[in-house]
Amino acid sequence: MSAVLSQNTAAPKAQRSEGVWAASWRRMRADKVGMVCMTIVALFLLLVIASGSGLVAKNWQKEVGVPNAPPTLMGPAPAEATGTIAMPKGPNVDLSDIDPLAPRYKEWDERAKQFKTEEVVKSETLPFGGDRLGRDVLAKVIKGAEVSIMVGVLAAVVATIIGTVLGAISGFFGGKVGDFLEWLYNVFTAIPGILLIFAFAVIFGRGVLSVVMILGLAGWPGIYRLIRAEFMKHSVREYVRSAEAIGASKTSRMFKHILPNVSHVALVQLSLHVVGFIKSEVILSYLGLGVGVDQVSWGTMLAESQSELILGYWWQLAAVTGFMAIFVTAFALFTDALRDALDPKLRGLE
């Protein structure tokens, strides 16, 4: 047969094929909501990078305003007339002949010149307001975004990788391996979630990477379960059978054939978990098990704003929730659009 074929093996037309990713990108571009959300997510990620490299919000710890400076762009209101007794305007009475310290004033002035004092003018108001120490809330929320987004995304990636790999193995092989992983899953789900997180927190200590590992290790079971079900369903489909018939190895069938077909499940789970983990980080930081005391995250800011709110200082809460709501919504919609773009319509299958 190869002899027959070699006669007409003229190279196929040079026309370049539209790859999987190019086609997905074309579908993605048609989705307006998805594109807007992608831009927002990209801007947030740029912000995270900028703040990480010290371009913005480097001096977030500096106390630039008066404590609890109210948010406004108009500047402080003019001071009201207080109605006290007018100050006398004439020159001071000369007391130098009877002042025992008078001869030393000059010397003191000389000595004082050797030191420089800088009078910091603390602003009465800030664009986004200030916290109880007078730190700029805008700089704080940007720095907090860096920590929170990094924790949320990295932890979700860790959880998704663990869940997907274990789910794939369990769903594809089944049998003893599947039984063992199911047992592991049961152990993890039998322990109340928050308790599990605390247990890991005790082992890992404080810090950003610790929080990532804690949340990742405690958050995979849900993803594992869904991926396992998908693999069980797909591993008996005819396209996987026919891959087996041409001699494709088990790894190739699991990760090259089935995984792209279930990737939308993993992607949606990833986005849901990013949102969930940002919230978990809040809880951990609130309880003092999260990021270090010298760091700031959306979680620590929310914890602070709780007591501020009682005193009527609402601006820190507003800034954090605003940033968080925009990012989380955009991220969820973006993952949705991504799923649609990556899915070449499984007609006749689903």
Partner: peptide, 22 residues
Amino acid sequence: RRRIQVVFQNPYASLNPRFTIG
């Protein structure tokens, strides 16, 4: 394996929907 091959019943299910024909 390469010498004995199979064609399945349902043409909608037997091709991987994520792979191009190439």
